[in-house]
Design a protein around this nucleic acid. Structure first.
Lengths: 133, 133
DNA sequence: CTCTGTGCAAAGCGTTTGCAAACGA
DNA sequence: TCGTTTGCAAACGCTTTGCACAGAG
């Protein structure tokens, strides 16, 4: 179990019990929707408010402590910010997982043919995971 | 100007004036948010309802006549369904454009390392377009 | 002690639904 | 003509806001 107190502070966020729990829950579960997060948080703080979840998600997004992952045909999930990576989405069980892929060639090729100065690449690969096959 | 009557029918959609106008507007503008589409449609049908826009967008999505493009840090846009491609998003002017990129290697690599059966790849490259640089 | 965060209730806003009239095939 | 679509208004659900109290630093 990681102590997120200092990490939160580095992101200009006070380390409240609720925030520490959000960080821990995201760490353990990887990718969570607002609803999932709320349900799990309720187990630790029986009177936590959805407003608190939203306020913290928004603050954490602004301070880059977490990131939103927009998924095709599914609601967004949130994850702790880590080094750049792509996502796999199982169309059946809806599980999201991280995958590290070399996109340099694709980005380079896109830069060449588009005259864009590309800063980031958001890639979601959809399919069927091993368990669901 | 393309006649979408038959194309709509092929997608099991009656060719109403509103739908023809939606198709035409998307064809001309490429990628549009619900709001943008509503505003432009109002110029052609001064009493069109937002509900009509939503109902048609949803039907057209179900029938694969159009597709939703989810963008990082921006609201979704919709486009006429065409062969698989990636998207470029200008972080400054928010314009979205299509780009054809070879993702086979990336998908193959992902399949190998993940044991997923991958069906599709949604890629959005964000950066600054030529005009905004 | 001060300022920020929390929980609650109310407000806000984008989206969906129900219905009667209009329309496409 | 029959079944679908439209426009309107109301309902809905997710998200945000305002405020008083609690808690972090």
């Amino acid at each position: 179990m990681i102590n997120y107190t200092d990490i939160l502070r580095e992101h200009n966020l006070k380390a409240t019990p609720q925030r520490l729990a959000i960080a821990d829950t995201l760490y353990i579960n990887g990718h969570m929707s607002v609803e999932d997060l709320y349900e799990l948080m309720l187990k630790k703080f029986s009177s936590i408010s959805l407003a608190t979840i939203y306020k913290n998600i928004n603050l954490m997004l602004e301070n880059s402590f977490i990131q939103e992952v927009k998924l095709p045909h599914a609601k967004s999930v949130y994850e702790l910010t880590k080094s750049s990576h792509s996502h796999l989405l199982c169309e059946k069980c809806k599980e999201v997982s991280d995958i590290s892929l070399a996109l340099e060639h694709v980005i380079e090729s896109a830069s060449r043919t588009s005259d864009f100065k590309i800063h980031s690449a958001d890639l979601v690969l959809s399919g069927i995971c091993k368990n669901c096959q």
